[in-house]
């Protein structure tokens, strides 16, 4: 199963990068959500994947059955999921507030901190890069 996950992670990463390189803050947030899924899958697959045996210990036993799933990446992912959820929410609220202030979600037009009028060279360069 790991090779399949590897390909899936690659697709998710490619989608993330493409979304983040666009001009829309909303799509950027979609990318952020995909990035955390990709990261979780990376952690999960790196710890080795075992079918259907959760890392639980039966009552009366002192150790789990052999070949249960690796608990370590699961513990890492559990907190990672909650953290990325709060990050995503923060980004969403930021997008919302930014839209309230600047009335745009086009990142090219969000120039409050580095106004493009300060140097005409940057504009010309931007056109050149585009």
């Amino acid at each position: 199963m790991e090779p399949v996950i590897a390909v899936l992670v690659g697709v998710l990463m490619a989608a993330t990068v493409y979304l983040m390189l666009g001009r829309s803050f909303v799509r950027f947030i979609f990318g952020l959500a995909l990035l955390s899924h990709a990261a979780n899958l990376v952690i999960f697959a790196s710890g080795g994947m075992t079918r259907a045996r959760p890392p639980l210990i039966a009552p009366g036993e002192s150790q789990p059955l052999p070949d249960v799933a690796n608990a370590v990446p699961q513990a890492l992912m559990l907190t990672a999921i909650v953290i990325s959820f709060s990050l995503l929410t923060f980004a969403l609220v930021l997008a919302f507030r930014t839209y309230q202030e600047l009335e745009t979600v086009d990142t090219d037009r969000m120039r409050a901190a580095e106004p493009s009028s300060a140097d005409a060279g940057a504009d010309a360069e931007q056109r050149a890069v585009d």
């Binding site: 199963m1 996950i5 899924h37 979780n40 899958l41 999960f44 994947m49 075992t50 079918r51 259907a52 045996r53 959760p54 890392p55 249960v68 799933a69 699961q74 992912m77 559990l78 999921i81």
Partner: peptide, 13 residues
């Protein structure tokens, strides 16, 4: 992805 986790022994996740 949640279902993949479920299939591979990670019910908590």
């Amino acid at each position: 992805t949640a279902l993949i986790f479920l299939l591979f022994g990670a019910p908590d996740v």
